[in-house]
């Protein structure tokens, strides 16, 4: 095991940049993805029939194809088509649109949106209908019912599952190294190419990922504990079970 390359500031710079980009991707795609998920779930439950079918087709497609393929679809497919449009290069969006990072964030946001929307939809359907009827009896508007009663209770129900989704998002970030985004894996690959070390850089970022998973898990556990209305017993689970969570197809 040779870790002397860690004293090289160039390599440390790569690793830091990779770490920052990884965190940025999780933060951006996590928050936008959850927002998208809520919209999709609402559309699936309360939308008109054609909208429901559309959303169902969308989530089935996203959940039924590899994320790697989606990433290349957006980056190589949509990205290239977009740059061929005449005016695109002149718009204010161009500095964003030419970055691979943008397509990574886009693909992850859509993926999180599709997976989490099924989770949130299930939770919304399991909110007791009496609560919604009571809200209606109070004369709340439709929007207010959703905002004040339905969503908060639904999210409270599925919060541990959403934590799992967030960890899965973190674990899929290395995929962006294939579309030339500087994430931790990309940084490790650069070090590997330049130092001819096969494992050490990979083992280091494996360690970083384990640490990040742990931190994220504990952070979310604090959120779960302090979420309004959560019974303490509901979120008291083993650390190992929380760390790894369950995977979904």
């Amino acid at each position: 095991m040779d870790f002397t390359w860690l004293t090289n500031t160039f390599y440390l710079g790569y690793l830091w940049e990779g770490f920052v980009n990884t965190m940025l991707l999780v933060a951006i795609s996590g928050s936008l993805g959850l927002a998208l998920a809520v919209l999709l779930a609402l559309g699936r439950i309360a939308g008109k029939r054609p909208l429901q079918l559309l959303i169902r087709g969308f989530t089935t497609t996203i959940r039924g194809t590899p994320l790697l393929v989606q990433l290349f679809f957006f980056y190589d497919g949509v990205g290239r088509v977009l740059t061929q449009f005449p005016g695109v290069r002149d718009t204010f969006m161009w500095p964003v649109l030419r970055e691979a990072f943008f397509y990574g964030a886009l693909a992850f946001t859509i993926s999180v949106g599709a997976y989490a929307s099924e989770v949130i939809r299930g939770a919304m359907l399991s909110v007791p209908s009496g609560e919604l009827e009571a809200a209606r009896a109070f004369g709340m508007s439709r929007f207010k019912i959703i905002w004040r009663i339905w969503l908060p209770h639904a999210i409270q129900i599925c919060l541990p599952t959403l934590t799992g989704e967030l960890i899965l998002l973190l674990k899929s970030v290395p995929l962006v190294s294939t579309i030339a985004v500087m994430d931790l894996l990309k940084a490790a690959n650069i070090v590997r190419d330049e130092t001819f070390l096969v494992y050490e850089p990979l083992l280091l970022i494996a360690g970083i990922y384990i640490a990040l998973t742990l931190i994220l898990t504990f952070g979310m556990r604090i959120v779960e504990h302090n979420f309004p209305g959560v019974r303490p017993a509901a979120s008291r689970r083993g650390v190992l079970a929380l760390l790894t969570g369950t995977r979904r197809a």
Partner: peptide, 23 residues
């Protein structure tokens, strides 16, 4: 067995595949 399942499930799949492929 616990170490096996915990480690494999805490490390990203792509990283694990690259690691195991060479290692």
């Amino acid at each position: 067995a616990t170490a096996y399942t915990t480690l494999v499930r805490a490390i990203p799949e792509l990283l694990l595949i690259i690691l195991l492929y060479y290692a």
